[in-house]
Write a protein that binds this DNA or RNA. Structure first.
Lengths: 153, 153
DNA sequence: ACTTAACTGTTCAACTGTTTAATCATTAAC
DNA sequence: GTTAATGATTAAACAGTTGAACAGTTAAGT
């Protein structure tokens, strides 16, 4: 592969990455509706899948400071979507769990997102989309590894 | 493809999309440094590539209201990165162009991002990455089409 | 046991980015 | 020549973020 080809490939990837991310985010926002912001939905999803978690964990996953998590959790707590429970053994830790309302709101939005993504995916061959996701997964691993390597420095 | 397989594929894509986007954004932020935010860098890039553009165009590309663009341009104008020039024929239109400082700052960050992406891409077979980008491009087209279809409704 | 250090989470001030609605200046349409 | 429409801005309000300071709790060292 020539230098020029590599540069073009990289340019194209940077361009596509920006464009796809923007448009996907925009479509997802429409599925979520006005009850939740994107970040709030992502937060609901993480807590839903983890069943229970704490601020530090969320801060690491979302790659923001803990104070940012406190702020977002506060807003969702005020809306009655999230509960806080202190650990009895280590009273520093605050467990975050979804309320019934939070659960319901998450599932409603997630179903719509699921339908959206399914309709997008259905426009590809099965082999093409499988190959794509496989590479995407590999990229994800490489990105995780890149972050870890930076931590060591 | 069974129902179950589709659901798993969709779940995986949603999961990966979130994870990859977060991590890539985080790595890119590190390349940009503290002189610029991500959005400011994206703005510089768009104006750099377009050579000249106006607020409405940016608002459409970034999928935000024009007032949001005004705000971001104001901050970058205060930093001396962007110039505003009124069109002589239609004095409503304000052309946005990069100052030398803006140009320089953009290129410095973009070079680092380029190196980052190149080092990521180099960890794949050429055929794999070509196939990936091809599918990514197709996905981008589909997303653009999805937006257009919504506009018609 | 007491002191110190480390950890979990919060508060506060300052900032970026966003939307909504109102406004200004300019151009287009009739 | 008055009325639309257009391009851009302003102001208020809010979500999200950081950085620094802090409170409460637990762990470690001695």
């Amino acid at each position: 592969m020539t230098e020029k080809n590599i540069k073009e490939l990289v340019d194209k990837y940077i361009q596509l990455s920006f464009s796809v991310t923007k448009k996907a985010e925009s479509l997802i926002k429409e599925q979520i509706g006005s009850d939740l912001t994107s970040d709030q939905h992502y937060t609901l999803r993480y807590i839903y899948q983890a069943e229970s978690c704490n601020s530090s964990e969320l801060a690491e996953v979302f790659d923001v400071k803990k104070s940012a998590i406190t702020a977002i959790i506060n807003r969702m707590w005020e809306k009655g979507l999230i509960q806080r429970t202190r650990d009895e053994d280590d009273r520093r830790i605050v467990y975050l769990t979804l309320t019934d309302k939070g659960n319901e709101l998450y599932l409603k939005a997630e179903q719509r997102i699921h339908k959206l993504v399914e309709s997008l995916i259905s426009q590809f061959d099965q082999s093409e989309i499988s190959q794509f996701i496989e590479t995407y997964e590999k990229l994800n691993d490489i990105l995780i590894h890149s972050k870890d390597k930076q931590m060591e420095e």
